Simulated assay, not measured.
Amino acid sequence: MNKKLAAALSGGAVLVLVLSGCGDDGEEKVNDWAKKVCDQAKPQIQKRADAQQAIISTAADGKPADIQAADSRAFADIAAADKALAKAVRDAGVPPVDDGEKLQNDAVKELDATAAEYLKLKEQIDGLNPEDQQKFADGLQEVADGLKKIERMDQAALAKLQSGELGTAMAKQPGCQRADASNSAEGAAAS
């Protein structure tokens, strides 16, 4: 049952790709803005990748209690990463592009909202009883459905930032490059 959750979460990789999608004086200002965001984003992108890998690796053959613990921890980590990404966008200031203030405000608002939704999912998974496998499986399906909704929010939160000049500038920044799960998560996946 957690495979559905893992499949839904793999859509969250789109957020990482959004960030990884992520000459003149104006271009230099845009690049400077992107660098500010991406320098702060790098550890958050890694945290998200590690959390997603933990869910996927536990989904393969995990026991309900293990799945519950991994998902709970992952949702908390992703929520914290989204909060930190919102702070990075806020701290970088208004992007030097048309409608920059609106882009910034929308991205921050939506990232904060997705963080809150991931915390709700954490509470939901924490409330499941892993001893009752049928109820656990049914509850896990509800969590997976909620996750799909959040991922659409995640994608919308950064889709505008990744477009046009900002997206081009962010794509050049090492901090916004796609993250693979760290060795510790890969080791857990291999076992």
Rank of each mutant, 00 (worst) to 15 (best):
N2M: 13
K3G: 05
K3N: 13
K4L: 14
K4V: 05
L5I: 04
A8H: 13
L9R: 13
L9C: 10
L9A: 10
G12S: 10
A13P: 03
L15M: 08
L15S: 03
V16Y: 10
V18E: 14
S20R: 15
G21R: 09
G23R: 13
G23F: 09
G23K: 15
K29Y: 00
K29H: 04
V30C: 01
C38F: 07
C38W: 07
Q44R: 13
I45Q: 06
Q46Y: 05
D50M: 01
Q53F: 05
I55R: 10
K63N: 03
P64S: 03
P64V: 03
D66Y: 06
I67V: 12
D71Q: 14
A81S: 09
D82I: 06
D82H: 09
D82R: 10
L85K: 05
L85F: 01
A86C: 00
V89R: 07
D91Y: 02
G93M: 04
P96G: 00
V97D: 00
V97Y: 05
Q104N: 07
Q104A: 01
D106I: 11
K109Y: 07
K109S: 07
A115K: 05
A116Q: 13
A116I: 03
E117L: 11
Y118T: 05
L119K: 13
K120P: 01
Q124L: 08
L128Q: 03
L128S: 00
N129I: 02
N129H: 05
E131R: 14
D132A: 00
L140I: 04
V143C: 00
A144Q: 06
L147C: 04
R152T: 15
D154R: 10
L161D: 11
L161Q: 08
L161N: 09
G167I: 03
M170D: 01
Q177A: 12
Q177I: 03
A181K: 07
S182E: 10
N183T: 15
N183E: 13
S184T: 15
E186P: 13
A188D: 14
A189K: 14
A190Q: 14
